[in-house]
Every structure is written in structure tokens, then in C-alpha cells.
Design a protein around this nucleic acid. Structure first.
Length: 779
DNA sequence: TGGGAAGAGAGGGCATAGGT
DNA sequence: ACCTATGCCCTCTCTTCCCA
């Protein structure tokens, strides 16, 4: 046991580094906000976009305004935009010149009136001529094309991105129908004539966006004029469908320009005058491998300048970015980046595939992480998006990072709002989201003092380790777990990140193996009142420190009390102290009462705590309702409640909880969590504001009858038990207030449109008829 | 060992309804 | 007229699995 007698009261100081960074990593997933922001979606179809809500939440958590956020694989520029909007300085890097074009264009201040008049000028110049191409005889098109220098499209398309029907296509010029080609040339020259650099930049973004529709790779759908997609974004390859989906270049440009303008206006409104080139924003075109050199060449500080880095590295050869963008490089007349400087390795050799990991890629990725580490201040965080089924890369990243003082802290599974058709088709097998890898730049000793992890320990070097952690998480979070709960939680977790590729039996065997090693049932003599037996961790098993500290402490006390059946306050304090002492950095948090933790599985009688299966059941149901949701901040509010009304509310909530867990199986799971969070917010607010007037909150109507589509949740579905001497007038008044204040407030806070909830008058008439409100499970 | 079947993969956009 | 949420639709290549 570690002690720190040198410090007063035996409490160690905060770790010796005076950093401005938070010690706590992000621990929970973020509610994705999807594609509704015009500044990200519609502005440019740059592939690999990340959910802006996730990026926002991470930047907010890890930084303060005016601190510096770094992204060395900037891509479409989400990090840059969100950082500036949040008033953080952004330094963004990418090797791809198109990434620079899109990112710069989205954050630069642009005079929108000038932009509009520039568009009008171009329209006057070429709109009619481009529209007339559709009526032009083929021979005349050929003759006109002959006047242009088309050598910029003579480049050969790499075989790695040429697929299927596109095998008949060899050069970039083959990708266009002659009419598209002529239209694009006219448009390009008109844009080139624009004198204002920033306006021209915006027009070039619209032009590059136009390229998505103006190639033979675009396949239109039967419905709608713009419906369809280009194979570049659909398959990350050049695929040409059998039938040509031709659209006139001017009509495309007009359509696309409107979207670009809309996204620009939105970003500009939010960034305002915070943008200052070189001051609050820098874009560095170059390879992440050369971060320090590129910064130094621009007279920028190269080391220890960034407070936080969030980035989404390419993963090996999944997408061949340097090859995929060749059509943009040609049309935008920008220099293609050198292949050897790119991280992705353009190879598909059989041997590389069998080995499952490309050494060259790992070497480059590790070097990039080294460059990030040098750029970070000590104590700074690095968040990596990890979306790859091959765990070898994961291991390589974590091991490699340690060499640069970047140490693994934790990992958060992050669901995405946007579901691929693969996910819709195979909800339990396809990758359901991203893993967020949080690392921190700290010397090993400090890192261990804070996070209690030996530096050489890799969290998930194997499937076995992953399964072990998931199993521990279920047992620790839910205070022991019966067999079926283990199966229902751990197996999907194993299947979800695609670690076992549908090999359910293998996962089951693995769980069985771990169970034999690490778990034990407590035995019938310890199970009171016919309670289902719970699997517990064997006493010697070390609980993974990546799990939440309070969860672990609560579990520790739970396991102790379940063995002892009853214990004095003193014994429990001794047990807790022993565990806290093994993690001295925890002592700095203010001394807390054990009672709230204990009350989740025990009752106080005659000065002794007695194990109570009923208390555990209630607590677990609450945790299931609140578990792993962004409503985490609400959790303490619930458990702090010290009023006689709590049991009744718990009853209603428990029932709701079980209804909702049935609803999870329905194809709603995307919306399910949002609505669950919403409901928790509603109920919490009701509790906070109206507890003096209410005796209970429970579910009625469709909610009480069975599985219900949560999207149809309405005020009537919540039953409010009024104190007995309330008059009807009081009730109506209360409802009106609820509808206006509670649901209105939920709308404001969560940003979720839920106007259907506000129907006070109808609900009032329901009350006036003298109906009794039925509490669930009672008369 | 060969052949066939099935699985899986860096999402995205338009149409529509219903609201403001 | 405009905004927002929701519904629905869309690919082809390559690997792995299964069975003869």
C-alpha cells in the first residue's frame, strides 16, 4: 500500500506539473448531432467527415477559450471550424491541397455580397453558353474541345482505385462526357478571371464540389434531379456505371453554389472576427511527418505550443486518398502531394494483407504521433478516432505513443448518428461507430500517479483483454451480474467493434474462459430471499483502473458487504480507505460520504449496514436507465434526492426503464438514447421544480401498455400524482406550467424539437373527467 | 482443393411532411 | 417561403465460410 506521510493529513498534493489541462478524460460518448449543420454538410463532399457534435464536445472538454487546438490530419476542416467557433486557436495540417482549399474557404471572412455579385458575373459570362452545350452537335463540341489544352487530364488512373466497369477507363479525361468536359472548361476559365483571391477561393470550392456531379462516376437515382452519388464518395474508388447520368454543368454549379454559400454564411456568422490568419488560425500544407519542420519554416513555434490535439488518422489502405483525389488535383491545378509523404500505403500485396498490418504504415503513423507529442505542451491531451477492425494498429499506436511520452488513458466507444447501409443490414456485426482513444503527454511517473497504470501496460492488446474489461465493466457497474446479463452485455460489445467478425461461438468460449479464471458465484448460502445468483470477481482479480473510480469503490464495498451480510460503519470506512489509499491521487478529491454509495445496495439498521437485494435491484434499474448516456450529469441529482417521494418516483422510473429496454430491440436504437436522455431530463426537471406538489411520477397510456414508439411520447403518457388536496384548478395550473416551463425548457436545453409535448388543454380535460391516475403495478 | 454463397465495407442525399 | 426532422433509397468488390 502506498502512503504519503510527508503530506499534511496524509493527502498527497496535486501532481507536481502545473498544467492548465484537465485530469479527467472524456469518459462517455457524445450525442452525435448528425448532418444538419450546413457549414459541414453541403459545403463540400470531402470524404471522412466526423460528427461535428463529437468534435465540439471534445474541444470543449479538453480546452479553454484562446488555447490552441491542433489537427494534423485536418481533412474537410471540421476541427478548424468548430475550434474557431468555440474561440480556440486552430492549427490545422493536411498533405492534401484540396483539404487546404476547403478548410481555408470555410473559415476565411468573405464579403457575401461580393461573392453573390461574382456569381452573377460568372452567370452573365458563361451560363447561357454552358446551357447551350446540351443542344450542340457532337462535332461542334469536339471541334471546340480541340481549342483547349487538355494535357492536364492526360494522367493515368491508378489501377488500385479503378474498379469494375471503370476498367475500360484509363485516363482522367475518360471520366467526363464531352459535354461535361466543355462545360467544366468554360466554368473553370470564368472562375479564373475573378480577381479577388478570397472570392475566387469560394468559387473554386463550388467548382470542386461541382466535379462530384460532372463526371461519369456519378450515378443518378430514379427519383429526384440531384439524387445519386459519385462512386468516389460511395466506394472510395473510380467506378463508372453502365448508364450515364448527365447533368448540365451550369445547373450543377448553380445548385452547389447555393449550398456552399449557405454553409459559408453559417460558419461566418459563428466565427465572426475571431479569425486572424497566423494568429487564431493557421493551415499548414504538408505531411504530419514533417510537422516541426513545416512549422519552423513558417516562423511558427514548433514544440510545446498546442494544448490539445484531436485528429482522425487515415488507417492504412482502407482509402487511397492520394490516388482518389487525382481528379481534383488535375482540375484545380494543384500539385499532388508526394506519395511517400502520405501515410496511406498504396499497396495491396497479398503478403501485406496476410500479415494484417503494414509495417511502413505503422512506422509513419508512429512518427506522426511523435510529431504531435512534440507539439503538445506537457499535460496536453491527444484524441484519436479509431475506426478499424484490425487491432494491430491499435496496439502499434499505443505502444508507439509511449515512446514519445504520450500515454494511454482511456477509450470511449462513440456511436455515429449516420448509419451506413451495412450497419442497418447487420446491426450487430458491422462497425457501429468509432473508438475514441484518449492519450496524454505526461512523464511516466506522473501518469502513473494520476491514472494508476504502469506505463508499459497496453489496454487492449488482445480480444481476451477486451472481453475481460467488458465483463468487468458489467459486473462492477451493475454490482454483480447474473449469467444472462453478462451474455447480453458482453457478447454484443464483442461483436460490435467487429472484433470477432460474427464468430459468436468464439466469443462465448472466451467469456467462459474468463469466467473460469476471474469469476465466482457467491454461492446459495449468500443469496438472500431467493435472489438470482450474481457472478462476482474473485477476490484476487485486479479491477481495471480504466473503469470509473466510484463504480469500482462502490463495487468494492458491495463485494465486501455481500460476503459479510452486515458491517459497521467503521469496517466499511476501513475497507474504503484501504482501496482509496492504493490510489493516493484520489484523496485530493473532497472527502465524501459513503452513505450514498452504500444506500445503493444496503440499508442502515441499528447503526449497522445490512445488505439489501431490494436496494440493489432499484439502484441497478436506475443505472440501466441512466447508464452510458450523456445524461450522466443528471445522475448525482437523482441520487442526492433525500425525500420520502423518491421510492414512488423510482417505481415509475423502473417501470419506464423496463419498457424502454424492450424498445431497444426495435429498430429505433438510434433515437432511443436521445429520447431516453430527453425523458430523464423531463423527469428530473419535474422532480426539481414540482416536488412539493407531486407525490409521484409514472407512466400511463401507451407507455404503460407495452412497447411504444418513443417518438410519439406525449405529455399524456406521463402521469403526475398530485397531492390529495389539490383542486382541479391547481391541477390545470400545474399542467400549464409544466407544459410551458418543463417541456419548453427541455426543448431549449437539449435542442431537440419536441413540440408535440405541449398540449396542456387536452390533458386537462382528461383530468377533469375524473379519471384516476393509475400507478404502474398498482390499482 | 474448388466452387458457390454469404458477409462486410471511412455514408450520404433527396423527398416529404409538418412545422414556423 | 423557409426550416427541420424523418423516411427511404442506394454499390460492387473481395474475403471468408461452407460444403462437396
Amino acid at each position: 500500500m502506498r502512503t504519503s506521510a510527508a503530506q499534511p493529513h496524509g493527502l498527497p498534493n496535486r501532481h507536481p506539473l502545473q498544467t492548465t489541462q484537465v485530469d479527467e478524460p472524456m469518459r462517455d460518448y457524445v450525442q452525435p448531432i448528425g448532418r444538419k449543420l450546413a457549414r459541414h454538410y453541403g459545403f463540400h463532399p470531402f470524404p471522412g467527415r466526423k460528427d461535428p457534435g463529437v468534435v465540439q464536445a471534445y474541444i470543449r472538454h479538453y480546452t479553454q477559450p484562446d488555447q490552441t487546438v491542433l489537427d494534423v490530419f485536418g481533412g474537410g476542416g471540421v476541427t478548424a471550424r468548430e475550434a474557431l467557433i468555440l474561440r480556440r486557436r486552430a492549427i490545422v495540417m493536411d498533405i492534401n491541397p484540396v483539404a487546404e482549399l476547403v478548410t481555408r474557404a470555410s473559415v476565411l471572412p468573405v464579403d457575401l455580397e461580393k461573392l453573390d455579385s461574382a456569381f452573377q458575373t460568372i452567370a452573365r459570362e458563361v451560363a447561357e453558353r454552358i446551357l447551350a452545350i446540351d443542344e450542340m452537335p457532337a462535332a461542334e463540341i469536339e471541334r471546340t474541345l480541340g481549342e483547349y489544352d487538355l494535357s492536364f487530364l492526360s494522367g493515368e488512373i491508378h489501377t488500385l482505385i479503378r474498379r469494375g466497369a471503370a476498367r475500360g477507363i484509363r485516363h482522367l479525361i475518360d471520366l467526363h462526357d464531352p459535354r461535361q468536359l466543355l462545360g467544366l472548361l468554360l466554368l473553370r476559365d470564368a472562375i479564373r478571371a475573378e480577381a479577388d483571391d478570397r472570392i475566387r477561393l469560394m468559387l473554386r470550392v463550388a467548382f470542386s464540389h461541382t466535379l462530384k456531379y460532372a463526371t461519369r462516376m456519378f450515378k443518378a437515382k430514379r427519383t429526384g434531379y440531384w439524387a445519386g452519388d459519385s462512386s468516389v464518395f460511395l466506394h472510395f474508388a473510380y467506378v463508372v456505371p453502365e448508364t450515364l447520368s448527365y447533368k448540365n454543368v451550369w445547373l450543377i454549379f448553380e445548385h452547389v453554389f447555393a449550398n456552399v454559400r449557405k454553409g459559408k454564411a453559417e460558419a461566418q456568422r459563428l466565427i465572426g472576427d475571431f479569425y486572424q490568419e497566423g494568429e487564431t488560425f493557421s493551415f499548414i500544407r504538408g505531411s504530419a511527418l514533417n510537422l516541426q519542420q513545416e512549422l519552423a519554416a513558417r516562423g511558427l513555434p514548433a514544440n510545446e505550443f498546442a494544448d490539445y490535439c484531436i485528429t482522425d488518422p487515415p488507417y492504412a489502405e482502407v482509402i487511397q486518398y492520394p490516388l482518389l483525389f487525382s481528379i481534383w488535383y488535375a482540375w484545380l491545378d494543384v500539385e499532388a502531394p508526394a506519395l511517400e509523404q502520405d501515410l496511406t500505403v498504396p499497396t495491396r500485396s497479398e503478403s501485406a494483407r496476410r500479415e494484417g498490418i503494414s509495417e511502413e504504415f505503422v512506422r509513419k503513423l508512429t512518427a506522426s504521433i511523435g510529431a504531435i507529442s512534440r507539439a503538445l505542451r506537457t499535460g496536453g491531451w491527444l484524441t484519436l478516432f479509431y475506426q478499424h477492425s484490425n487491432l494491430s494498429y491499435w496496439k502499434a499506436i499505443v505502444e508507439g505513443a509511449g515512446e514519445y511520452d504520450l500515454r494511454y488513458v482511456n477509450l470511449v466507444p462513440q456511436p455515429q448518428n449516420v448509419k451506413s447501409f451495412a450497419q442497418v443490414k447487420h446491426p450487430f456485426k458491422a462497425i457501429a461507430g468509432t473508438l475514441m482513444l484518449n492519450l496524454r503527454k505526461l512523464p511516466a511517473s506522473v501518469h502513473e500517479a494520476i491514472y494508476g497504470r504502469p506505463e508499459n501496460r497496453i489496454l487492449f492488446p488482445s480480444l481476451h483483454k477486451f472481453a475481460e474489461l467488458e465483463l468487468q465493466r458489467v459486473i462492477v457497474e451493475y454490482l454483480g451480474a447474473p449469467t444472462d446479463v453478462i451474455a447480453y452485455h458482453v457478447i454484443p460489445a464483442l461483436l460490435n467493434p467487429n472484433l470477432v467478425s460474427g464468430k459468436v461461438q468464439e466469443a462465448v468460449d472466451l467469456i467462459e474462459l474468463i469466467r473460469e479464471q476471474d469469476l465466482e458465484p457467491l454461492g446459495a448460502e449468500h443469496v438472500p430471499n431467493g435472489e438470482k445468483d450474481l457472478w462476482m470477481l474473485k477476490p484476487g482479480v485486479e479491477i481495471d483502473p480504466a473503469l470509473d473510480f466510484y463504480d469500482r469503490l462502490r463495487y468494492h464495498l458491495f463485494a465486501f458487504l455481500r460476503r459479510q451480510k452486515e458491517a459497521t460503519q467503521l469496517e466499511l470506512h476501513a475497507t474504503a480507505s484501504e482501496m482509496i489509499a492504493s490510489e493516493p491521487h484520489r484523496m485530493q478529491t473532497k472527502l465524501f460520504e459513503l452513505a450514498p454509495l452504500l444506500s445503493e445496495f444496503a440499508e442502515l439498521q441499528d447503526g449497522n449496514w445490512h445488505y439489501s437485494p431490494e436496494a440493489r435491484r432499484r439502484a441497478v434499474q436506475m443505472r440501466l436507465l441512466l447508464a452510458r448516456s450523456s445524461a450522466d450529469e443528471l445522475r448525482p441529482v437523482f441520487f442526492q434526492a433525500d425525500t420520502a417521494l423518491l421510492p414512488l418516483r423510482m417505481q415509475g422510473l423502473s417501470e419506464l426503464s423496463s419498457r424502454y429496454s424492450q424498445a431497444v430491440d426495435r429498430p429505433l436504437s438510434g433515437e432511443y438514447r436521445t429520447l431516453q436522455n430527453l425523458l430523464v431530463a423531463v423527469l428530473t426537471t419535474i422532480r426539481d421544480r414540482f416536488s412539493s406538489q407531486l407525490t409521484s411520477v409514472s407512466a400511463i397510456g401507451p407507455l404503460a401498455e407495452g412497447i411504444v414508439d418513443l417518438r410519439n411520447l406525449e405529455l399524456e403518457d406521463l402521469s403526475l400524482g398530485l397531492i390529495s388536496h389539490s383542486s382541479i384548478e391547481d391541477a390545470v395550473q400545474l399542467e400549464t406550467t409544466l407544459a410551458k416551463e418543463v417541456f419548453g425548457r427541455v426543448f431549449l436545453n437539449s435542442g431537440i424539437m419536441f413540440t408535440g409535448l405541449v398540449r396542456p388543454l387536452e390533458h386537462s380535460s382528461w383530468l377533469r373527467t375524473g379519471n384516476h391516475i393509475t400507478l404502474l403495478g398498482q390499482e
